[in-house]
Design a protein around this nucleic acid. Sequence first.
DNA 1: ATGAAAGCGCTAACAA
DNA 2: TTGTTAGCGCTTTCAT
Lengths: 346, 346
Amino acid sequence: MAKTKPRVTIRDVARRAGVSHMSVSRVINKSARVSSKTRAAVEKAIAELDYRPSAIARSLARGKTHTLACLTPNLTDFTFASIIEGAEVEARRRGYFLIASAAPDEQAFDALQNQLISTRRIDGLIVFNPYADDRHVHLRPGVPVVFVGSRHRGGRISSVALDEESAAAASVEYFLDQGHRQIMTITGPTAEDCVTGRLQGYRRALSDAGLAYAPEHIFVGDWSANSGYAAVESWLAQGIPFTAIFAQNDRMAVGAIAALRDASLCVPADVSVIGFDDMPLASYFDPPLSTLRQDMPLIGREAVRLLLESIEHPERPSQHLQLPVELVIRSSTAEFSRERRIPERR
Amino acid sequence: MAKTKPRVTIRDVARRAGVSHMSVSRVINKSARVSSKTRAAVEKAIAELDYRPSAIARSLARGKTHTLACLTPNLTDFTFASIIEGAEVEARRRGYFLIASAAPDEQAFDALQNQLISTRRIDGLIVFNPYADDRHVHLRPGVPVVFVGSRHRGGRISSVALDEESAAAASVEYFLDQGHRQIMTITGPTAEDCVTGRLQGYRRALSDAGLAYAPEHIFVGDWSANSGYAAVESWLAQGIPFTAIFAQNDRMAVGAIAALRDASLCVPADVSVIGFDDMPLASYFDPPLSTLRQDMPLIGREAVRLLLESIEHPERPSQHLQLPVELVIRSSTAEFSRERRIPERR
DNA sequence: ATGAAAGCGCTAACAA
DNA sequence: TTGTTAGCGCTTTCAT
């Protein structure tokens, strides 16, 4: 077995270049206070020895790890994964690494913070959906944090989220323009801020149009396709008439469409449906799904930018970003027409 | 601004417990050579001061970072994301962190290795699809590596992959059992090993049944839904008759089904389709997709297990794992019947 | 502009 | 079993 060659250190480079190790340190840190002659000698030695500074040693000496962590309910949801990918690329571009970890519940969240923060492994933390449960309560003080998906209720922590209210309002307004009047919505768990925002937009658009707000038009789902299916089943069973559904994510929209089909109702001929997220293959469902598209990698990039800003300038005030959402109309939506069958009690 | 309190170190604990810092080190490292009295005093002091060892300092002293990296084409593909999530959980369970980074091309792959390996930030590396391009050529020697998706061609590196051949054969055999004889396949890029394995299984099952191998029954796609659509278009345009399609991933299966629908052919009445991966919502497509299901988190867990084994026991021989794949029959497959319309030249 | 000395917080090796 | 002494590879501080 080949013995692994011992690491080339800053002192090896110094010896080879005939200078002290401090000059080498200055060169690799791009300090100005080095003569061009010394710099050239050091750079030559670095190249010859293929020297790379040890990230760990630098971390210890500087007290910075140049590593961030991202705590999210899971890594597999397309929405989360896309944000993480955006964050990871941006972090690396700025010389940081990103550890993305799945914390499905508060307990896991707390354990992860122990592993990451108490041991000083990371310089900052990105927390997805901090109010989905009580995980925000477990936040360790003293570590720079950025929220994704919710504004900090204390105002102290920067965050990046979507303009949920405008997005929801845009979809309802689209329905209204198309002549729909009986517009339902399927939400996620009401504890999540995005649901609150979307509901506000939904209500505002309706009341702006002079339409009454009807609590039975709102079905609380759990983001799963099954819950979208259950929403439609429930409305049909209660005999509540409707011609349009704003599902607050694409999975629930797909579930709702399946339930409509099983009830022999056509989308969009009988009922129009708009989803949220523009998930992959949204255009390959039957019918191709109208939906609200968000720029998820941008969310990740902005989260990293805000986090590094609060690491490097802790004195600056926190910021809250609201990114725009775009309505994408495909074929699950159509104009209201008198001839359509309005779902009734089965 | 609250000044951040200085870190509690091993010496603070030692002072408080009235012992040397080495006794503290021994206690936190669970070394046996400590008297129970000393241990108790140290543990008390640790609790009182809420001491946590610095991961960075340990890394520097021990020469191990307890961090792994996972280099994958992207983080958003459901398949990749699921494997990464499994790997991340397993790594953490064993006291390691995982940095997952997207390396879409060879150049990015090489750059990432520079950032991660040359700076000694990680102890080991998991590489997804090493033969998708020439990224395997850029592998730095001296760092423990595990491949995911392909066996190492030199045999020196451990790997975990699927039993691609059996999986493909199982789907073809299912078609044969159902009476189909004109069975097509849509592959991914032929450079990828999984495609080779799946093609072998496809051919073997056909020849075992005494059926001739027809090159025009194979369409080389690129994993995208569009390429699945193109495959069907191409067969129809050439007037090649077929009644069953084995698409080597679900996206291409969905694309193929869309093309069949656009050609007024019914799935499964006219053509049966089997996909691969069992992606989310596969059961919500129209028709619900028959597919081959793999246990992706298990792949991740096994990859981490093999990687840690080769880190801790570099002398042991490499291993190649082949995980089983399960055929899930939903509604995109049906028995062959004489009455069906076999697609012909349009 | 350059270098010597003293850490960062821990562990390895040795001595007691 | 315990403590002492040296590092790990770098940066920071302070001379020169």
